[in-house]
């Protein structure tokens, strides 16, 4: 079969103990029957493992940090595009979504497609806006408040019971068991990710997740529910299994339909003992465990590329229940010359 040639750029090559989704996304893409791909890795840090895995990426480039501003990011992508002629970019970090959404029309002008949520969709599912989101779309969410100062935290500790969750604007969450801990985490997260910091009620139950892909018109193109079987001390899944849970799929379809979500998504859900489903977080992108969905029969990265290119994409209707993933780490060996090339020239 003659496969269509494409160049896809992917970020999030930080396949470390708290992994980015880049490498599993690429593995999914590499298994595509329809496309013959050249993969460009885009990295922010010089030790992102994906950069050095030459069977994963064909070439890598360093990008300026999101905090350098949209203009530097666009200039860098423009430069990379002048060499590589990129068809689609798949950004995989939360923190880069805001600039990428803003850049989407300008990227389209230079021939690069993305498939991202709209700014409104992106903003309204934000951790800080979760309570309103719950009301608007009629889904259960835990109590939460966004705070901008330490003094607000003091006031809040009277309203909220401990333990409480303290969450960073983009990443990281900690469970605080007393006021001192909450204060410590507040400062840590505010310094790292900026304000606000989110204080969330601690709902007890089993954490379950859904990976999904929306076509922007209300259709669910792909959806696979999973339960983490083993969680590392960083709260990341080290093993997981696909579930047969109709209610989770219904909840996902309800959200996709009512928000007309465009792009990849991960729902983090707590299923309580009373069989209630609380959405604790909505990640506006493909999660790192995407390769489980690929293994269970839904190649979400491939479907996302098709949507980005405007190719008609039929919803996946089934997946294999009981498929498991067990994450493993792997010591990749390379020479310092590769590192030198990357750090001095910004590409490898």
């Amino acid at each position: 079969m003659n496969r269509r040639k494409l160049t896809i750029a992917v970020t999030g090559l930080n396949n470390i103990d708290s992994p980015g989704p880049g490498v599993p996304v690429i593995r999914g893409l590499r298994e595509s029957d329809e496309f013959d791909l050249r993969i460009i890795g885009l990295a922010y840090e010089n030790l992102e493992p994906g950069i050095y895995l030459h069977d994963v990426v064909d070439k890598s480039y360093l990008l300026p940090l999101p905090s350098a501003g949209i203009e530097s990011l666009f200039e860098r992508i423009e430069y990379i595009n002048s060499i590589e002629n990129i068809d689609v970019i798949i950004p995989n970090f939360d923190a880069e979504l805001f600039p990428m959404i803003k850049l989407e029309p300008r990227l389209a002008e230079i021939g690069i497609k993305c498939f991202l949520p709209t700014l409104e969709q992106f903003e309204e599912r934000h951790k800080a806006n979760l309570p309103e989101y719950g009301k608007k779309y009629n889904v259960k969410v835990p109590e939460s408040t966004a705070i901008n100062s330490y003094s607000e935290l003091k006031k809040l500790s009277e309203e909220f019971e401990f333990p409480m969750l303290v969450k960073g604007k983009y990443y990281e969450a900690y469970t605080a068991y007393n006021e001192e801990q909450a204060g410590m985490y507040f400062n840590k997260l505010a310094n790292k990710w900026g304000l606000p910091v989110i204080i969330q009620e601690f709902v007890t139950g089993t954490e379950v997740n859904v990976i999904a892909l929306g076509d922007g018109k209300g259709n669910t193109i792909a959806a696979v529910p999973m339960r983490k079987q083993y969680i590392t001390d960083k709260g990341k899944a080290w093993g997981g299994i696909t579930l047969d849970d109709k209610k989770m799929l219904e909840l996902t379809e309800h959200i996709m339909k009512s928000t007309k979500w465009r792009g990849g998504m991960e729902l983090e859900i707590i299923k309580t003992k009373k069989n209630e489903y609380y959405i604790i977080e909505i990640n506006p992108r493909i999660p790192a465990w995407v390769y489980l969905a690929v293994g269970a029969g839904q190649n979400i990265p491939e479907a996302l590329v098709k949507l980005a290119l405007g190719i008609e994409t039929k919803p996946y209707e089934s997946y294999q229940v009981g498929k498991m993933f067990i994450r493993y780490s792997w010591d990749h060996i390379c020479d310092i010359q590769e590192f030198e090339k990357l750090t001095t020239f910004g590409e490898l």
Partner: peptide, 8 residues
Amino acid sequence: LGIPNKFG
């Protein structure tokens, strides 16, 4: 290490 500096 890990922190990007030169972008090109």
